[in-house]
Design a protein around this nucleic acid. Sequence first.
DNA 1: CGCTTACTTGAGTCTGGTCAAACGGGGTGG
DNA 2: CCACCCCGTTTGACCAGACTCAAGTAAGCG
Lengths: 251, 251
Amino acid sequence: MTLTGPNGGKRVPCEKCPLRKRPVFRPFEPEELAFVSRFKTGELSVDRGATVLVEGANSAHLYTVLSGWGFRYKLLPDGRRQILNYAMPGDLIGLQGSLMEEMSHSVEALSPMLLCVFERDQLHELYRHHPDLAYDITWLASREEQMLDENLLSVGRRTALERAAYLIAFIAGRAAAVGLGDSDPLEIPITQQHVADALGLSLVHTNKTLRKLIQRRLISWQERGCVVRDVDGLLEVARWEGTNETVRPLV
Amino acid sequence: MTLTGPNGGKRVPCEKCPLRKRPVFRPFEPEELAFVSRFKTGELSVDRGATVLVEGANSAHLYTVLSGWGFRYKLLPDGRRQILNYAMPGDLIGLQGSLMEEMSHSVEALSPMLLCVFERDQLHELYRHHPDLAYDITWLASREEQMLDENLLSVGRRTALERAAYLIAFIAGRAAAVGLGDSDPLEIPITQQHVADALGLSLVHTNKTLRKLIQRRLISWQERGCVVRDVDGLLEVARWEGTNETVRPLV
DNA sequence: CGCTTACTTGAGTCTGGTCAAACGGGGTGG
DNA sequence: CCACCCCGTTTGACCAGACTCAAGTAAGCG
């Protein structure tokens, strides 16, 4: 886990942020950009498997994913784990920890990740002087809630096969919006255990379910990764229309 | 469904809002109160069973629950329903619909409800001139997300009995914070179908599960309602510590 | 080369689902 | 006033989807 200081070597200036070029992200006014740039106090680089945020901690920072994959999860006292959502470039993480006393979930990296670091303290200043950005942050929180709603519907009411197809199509859709898998078929860096914990299923049953999707040639599996072959096919199995990724703010 | 106009007969002025006296809600500055009061453009009274907000609609309003119970839910095309969360006094509903293009869930009343109505358009003004209130709204959105996280963990990873106990203890905890069931034991106005749809279980299995809680004298069931007898017992069955209801903003 | 991690697969079990029927109270129309 | 119906709850019988246990394979790594 490396923390690059302000203007350190690796620092990606917000103005030149590669993500910002993507059409999913709304263009920012120069002054907004300037503020965000000041708001960003560093970059954090974490390895695969590293814990970015821990439940119960009182984090002084919040982050935006610059690159890489991660996931939010909660644990039961006896170790049962539920993955709540996946995080990918452009996603804000740790907002809850900045607003509340402490984090109520943990975040772990699925691949090496690069994170933009923001100071929790400056959030108040953002709200005071940049109402549009404040609005954006609420919007992002609301979007996260929307995703959770859909996930909850899935875990609660879809069958195992529908759930698996939904999850992969959902991730693929979000990834496509930020330009992942543009050229080659998308490869999601997850193990089947991660899928199981997101779906609320056992590892064994998840394996058997994924096998069906593989047989139908909708996905294939490589060590440590799911290759998405046919998103439309997945959507059909899930009986889902997919989300329309609307234009959104970036931090 | 009745809409009472500004300063109509039934209108509860924000300054005299009975909820505001509760210690869970943070005290507001006079100017904040004045703005909220202006922000509130009316009251909406709905009957039990009425749909307050519909998925897909583009609502011009958002609401705060003044009294009564409701629930947020999503449907699958074939009718399967998942209840996402329950709404009770002090909760903000319809924020998503105000921020996004359209609602991604519906809201239905479990009992007669009284709602404070706010204009979506004025949300921008709130963000521009009342950063603290804006912050509060984000905080509330974040709290809703936190509740969803916990619900998702429950549906995904807890057993049927744990889930049922958790749900009822969760609702009871929230209700107690806003003063419901202060004198008599709390009575939650839900049917077993509502419990089933919140837990992701079938009606039959839900009935058998609730029966166990009833045998253990943790709850009892009256027509159209769950009576909470022993919250600590429920927490124990759920293997859960309960949420600490922290002070929060009201609207 | 042995260890670890992740994926597979089969067998047997059990939780939870489906189907079906019945009950009881409240409301309503005859 | 009574018969009927509807809604929500209850129960039993049976079925199936998902879980656990167990063992084996394959690839990567020190």
